[in-house]
Simulated assay, not measured.
Amino acid sequence: MTTVDSAQTPEMQALKVRLKATWESGDYGVFARYLESGALEFLQRLHLEPGERMLDVACGAGQLVIPALRAGNDATGVDIAANLIEQARKRARTDGLPAHFDEGDAEDLPYPDASFDVVSSLVGMMFAPRPERVVAEALRVCRPGGRLMIGSWTPTSFIGGMFKVIGRHVPPSPLMPSPMLWGDEAVLQERFGSGVTALSFERMAYPLAYPFGPAEVVEFFRTYYGPTNRAFAALPEELQATLRHELEAYWTEHNRATDGTTRLASELLILSAVRV
């Protein structure tokens, strides 16, 4: 088991408190409903075998774990946001599924060494502030010969561009490397290094589809997606209007739908590897 990081600086401790509050704001359970088709495609790429024990890191409200449980797999989810873990447990109870969800930090996972056959994360662990600790923990809880599969937005993806728009108004913390580095193959090769073998990458066009127009999509993100919710809250009213205008223009520019809805894709880099 890992121990609490007593050497963590006060600045890092404060950042982690803010990040937890960010993901507990809005309502990711509602937000993720329109991401479900892409999540199911990602889950299919995992090719879970009967009897394999899966851990989904930064699981949200169970977007991967719940369908994995429905398919009869042994799946566990862990997330830093207590309210999302409670949502996931409630969903599992409603479906009569075993509720394997724990509140926990991707940098300090609450599991013994080699607890899982498969460790996954879909646009989740990329938002933890210390990637070297996230990688070490993912490798620690995965058994030797077990598999890892991690999906992350690329720097040039649509979502990567959206974060750039937000970052012009609300600069990210200098204590945290850009989450979009998880979408860079060379960076991931360096981070995982000799800890894995059979390292490979593929790219997926992750579908983003909403039954309303770009202006409503921006409001949907502001209401339900923690990072966007907190970014707007950090700005005075007049700058909120500017950010809203820029985000609406960005979504409108990339929208492929012509029927009043919003439809586009954001590039996802998927890392697959085997734990040595």
Rank of each mutant, 00 (worst) to 15 (best):
Y210A: 15
P236N: 01
R244A: 10
L239I: 09
Y210R: 09
Y210P: 15
E237M: 04
P227G: 01
T228P: 09
P236T: 05
E238S: 13
L235V: 11
R222L: 06
P214R: 03
Y225C: 06
Q240H: 02
T242H: 14
T223N: 02
A215Q: 11
Y224H: 14
A231W: 04
T223P: 00
Q240N: 00
L243P: 08
A231K: 06
L239R: 15
F220E: 03
A215R: 11
Y225N: 05
T223K: 09
H245W: 01
P236M: 01
T223R: 09
L243R: 02
H245K: 12
L235S: 05
V217L: 12
A231P: 09
A231M: 04
Y210G: 14
Y224Q: 02
P211Y: 05
L243H: 04
V218Q: 00
F212L: 06
E238V: 15
F221V: 08
H245Y: 04
V218N: 02
Y225L: 11
N229M: 06
Y225P: 00
Y225G: 00
F221W: 13
L243Y: 03
N229R: 10
T223V: 06
H245P: 07
F220P: 09
A233T: 06
G213L: 09
F221C: 14
Q240V: 00
E219G: 00
G213K: 11
T228D: 10
Y225D: 01
R222M: 05
R244S: 13
T228C: 13
E216G: 03
T242V: 15
R230M: 13
F232T: 12
E237Q: 13
A215N: 11
E219D: 15
F221M: 13
R244G: 09
T223I: 01
L243G: 08
T242P: 12
T242L: 14
L243N: 10
R244Y: 07
Y225M: 05
P214M: 04
P227D: 03
L243V: 06
F221P: 07
A231C: 10
E237N: 07
A233P: 07
N229T: 14
H245M: 02
L243S: 07
F220W: 15
A233Q: 12
E238M: 10
P236E: 11
R244N: 13
E238I: 11
R222Y: 02
N229S: 03
P211M: 07
T223A: 10
F220Q: 05
T228H: 11
A233D: 13
E237R: 13
F220T: 08
R230V: 14
H245A: 14
A241D: 14
T242Q: 15
R230I: 12
A234P: 06
F232P: 06
P227T: 02
F212R: 01
